[in-house]
Design a protein around this nucleic acid. Structure first.
Lengths: 219, 219
DNA sequence: CACGAATGTTGACACTGTCTATACTTGGAT
DNA sequence: ATCCAAGTATAGACAGTGTCAACATTCGTG
């Protein structure tokens, strides 16, 4: 008896067992998206340290080598997850803006609060998004997605004044100031690294309280 | 012949071979410090991803299990490296302050520039320092070292005005504002994530240019 | 239907952290 | 001086990881 036939039979039995077990076909159908969602789940439930190609493959019900066809390396999967992160990041900011008054100041604060809210709810995803070296080519959608997120801040920054920068270079400086400020706050808060937490309650300083008032026009 | 004696002889030969090879004693003498320095070297030369207990052990010329006696887990080594990082961090800021004019504004800018300079020269060490979950107990000297670094900013913040916070809560708000701003700038710059880089030169926005002028007293 | 491309499986290799058992060294108590 | 316990280093094992290569299966298109 040809050993290839034996192997085939064994494999077929194994395949049928897998099929009954997980109700999936040999071809998953949408493994790439499934792996991304598995990665997001792991980030949320177990943290960045537990994120691995094999863990994603396992959670998606495929073998450890399967991801290779969709993500050549772990870095590429990171890029894909960061891309999805930036999309949700933009959406969270815009949701907060929609639910806020439409005056300029409220919109700026709403975007900032959306920024912080996203970080609070997606701590490890946020870490992944912003701890990656800038490799625009690692994943094709990454750069556009991050630029889209930045454009949200750019919109609200149009209602802020560049006159209060040390060396105002126009609108660009205001955007950078706003981003720098919000990003710094979000990073320090998410890492629980505020030394200025309220001594009694342990609460972090509120974004609204330390937000630089001078940044607004017409006040 | 007792097998223990055989083993002893074999081990003695092996020991002598090692001794000739690396000119070290069986007891390293100061392995803990050597491992920390090996870790810093690796962070500088190969990056955070390449930092491992075994790589440090290898660089220090000891076996892979040796670090266990000084750092129970990788997280503890991380804590030790972060501690050393915070000490150098404080020193860098203070050096910049010493070499700057003594007026309040120059001192604030100098500390900020020291902050950024450290991050630029110790990118992966900085990432390690600020990407660690706050675990004050992981390494005994970590918390004091990080608080010492923060106290540098606290000093210069005494020359800044809380009047321009949205909801000024006194000196604490100014400290938090300053730290948030500088930290955000340093993180974004070190990760090369400024979208507002000069279109022609590719240069990042300068800290001095976007520094919020309103923060200073008496101006 | 056939065949190449796309997708998934399996096994291997070199890494990693961590645990255990063991050996050596040192320093202090007897 | 000697002996023993604590400190320190080694070696081997185990599970887990990324990555690669060989192979199997399925899909899509001629």
């Amino acid at each position: 008896m040809d050993s290839a036939i034996v192997n085939r039979n064994v494999d077929t039995v194994y395949f049928n067992w897998r099929k009954r077990l997980s109700d999936t076909k040999y071809h998953h159908g949408n493994l790439k998206q499934a792996l991304i969602e598995a990665g997001l789940d792991i980030l949320c439930a177990e943290g960045l340290e537990k994120l691995s190609l094999r863990a994603c493959a396992n959670r998606a019900g495929v073998s450890h080598g399967a991801p290779k066809n969709h993500f050549a390396t772990l870095a590429v999967l990171h890029g894909a997850l960061a891309t999805e992160g930036f999309k949700r990041f933009s959406a969270t900011m815009r949701e907060h803006m929609i639910n806020a008054p439409k005056d300029a100041k409220s919109q700026v604060l709403a975007s900032a609060q959306g920024y912080v809210a996203f970080v609070e709810e997606n701590k490890d995803l946020f870490r992944l998004m912003f701890s990656m070296e800038r490799q625009p080519d690692i994943y094709p959608e990454l750069l556009p997605a991050s630029r889209e997120a930045y454009s949200v801040l750019r919109e609200v920054a149009q209602n802020m004044s560049p006159e209060n920068c040390e060396n105002p270079q126009g609108q660009l400086s205001v955007e950078t100031m706003l981003w720098t400020f919000i990003h710094g706050y979000a990073v320090l808060k998410s890492n629980k690294q505020f030394y200025t937490a309220n001594a009694e309650t342990g609460a972090d300083p509120k974004l609204e309280d330390i937000f630089p008032r001078f940044l607004f026009k017409n006040e």
